[in-house]
Amino acid sequence: MSFLMFLNTDLLVATVRLSTPITLAALGATVCERAGVVNIAMEGIMIIGAFFAAVTAFYTGNPWLGLASGVLAGGIYSLIHAAAAISLHLDHVVSGAVLNILAFGITRYLMVLFFGHPGTSDAIPSFLGDYQFAVPLLSKIPVLGPVFFNQTPIIYISFILVIFLAWFLKHTRTGLHIRAAGEHPLALETIGVSVYKIKYLAVFISGLASGLAGAYLSIENNVSFTEGMTNGKGFIALAAMISGGWSAAGSFLSALFFGFADALQIRFQVFRIFHVPEELFIIFPYAATIIAVAGFVRRSRPPKADGVDFIIEKENE
C-alpha cells in the first residue's frame, strides 16, 4: 500500500468541512476582539445557533429559514455578552464563561419543550447539504476546484466572509471604527463616534458568525441537533483566532490547519499506519496546534485595548 495515498483531494475537502465551523466562529471572534471585546463565548453561541437553526428547519421544513433563525439567534444571544461586558462593565472573560454555561442549560431545557425528549432533535426534513453547488468551470480546476468550488452554501459563505471581513475591516468606515475601538477607544469617542455602539455592533457580528457556525453543524453538515454537538469547537476557534494574529485571513488559515490535522488523524486511523491506541490519533490535532503555536506563531499582538473596560465619565476626576 502506498504510504501516502491519503494525501489527496478528498483530504483537502475534508479539511475544509472540518474547519468551516471553526473558521466562522474565529472570524466572528476576530471582529469582536478587534473592537476590544474579548469573546470566549463562541462555544455557547454556536450551540444556541445550532439549536434554533434545527428547530426552525424542523418546524418550517425550510432549511434557509433555519439558517436565518440560527444566525439571528446567535446574534441575539451574543447581545447578552455585549450588555454584560460593555454596559455592565463585567469582565469579558467572566461574561463569556457565563454565556457558555447558560447555553447548555438553555438548549437542554428547550429540547424537552420543543421535541419532548433531550439528547438529539428529530431529523429535519430538508437540509442545506442538498444545495451543494459546483461553480461552473472553476470547479474543474484540479485539486483546488473540488476544494473551493464544489461545496455547500455555508461553506461558500465562510469563504466569502473571510474575504469580506478582511476587506470590511480595512476598507469601510465601520471597519475602521472597529479597529480604532480596539486600539484607542477614547480617540474614537473624541471624534464623535460612539464606542459603545461600535462594540455592540462588533459583538453582534461575532454572534451572527458563531450562530452561522452552529447552523452549519446542525442543518448543513447534518440533519439534526445534538446537545453538546459543538464538542469544544468554539474554543478551538478561540485558539485559531489568537494564533491567526487577530486577523480574518490568519484565523482562516489557523482553522484550516486544525481542520487539516483532524482530517489527517482520521485517515491515520483508516489506514492504521501506526499500531497505537486510537486515542493517540485523536490527540494529534491538539498536539499539532500546540506545536504550531510554539514553533511557528510568533508573539502576535492583540489589539491594545482588548478586554479593557471603557467608561467615558470617570468617577473621580
Binding site: 470566549i40 469544544g232 474554543f235 478561540l238 485558539a239 489568537i242 494564533s243 491506541p277 486515542e279 493517540l280 485523536i282 490527540i283 491538539y286 498536539a287 496546534t289 500546540i290 503555536v293 510554539a294 506563531v297 510568533r298 508573539r299
Partner: peptide
C-alpha cells in the same frame, strides 16, 4: 510546557492549557 511556552514565546495559556486538557482527556482511557 504551557508555562514554558508562555514565558519563552508568549504563547497564550488559554490555547496551550486547553489543548493539553484535550490530550489528558484522551489519555485517560489508555
Amino acid at each position: 510546557i504551557p508555562a514554558l511556552l508562555k514565558v519563552k514565546t508568549g504563547a497564550h495559556e488559554v490555547i496551550t492549557t486547553m489543548m493539553f486538557a484535550h490530550i489528558a482527556r484522551y489519555l485517560s482511557p489508555i
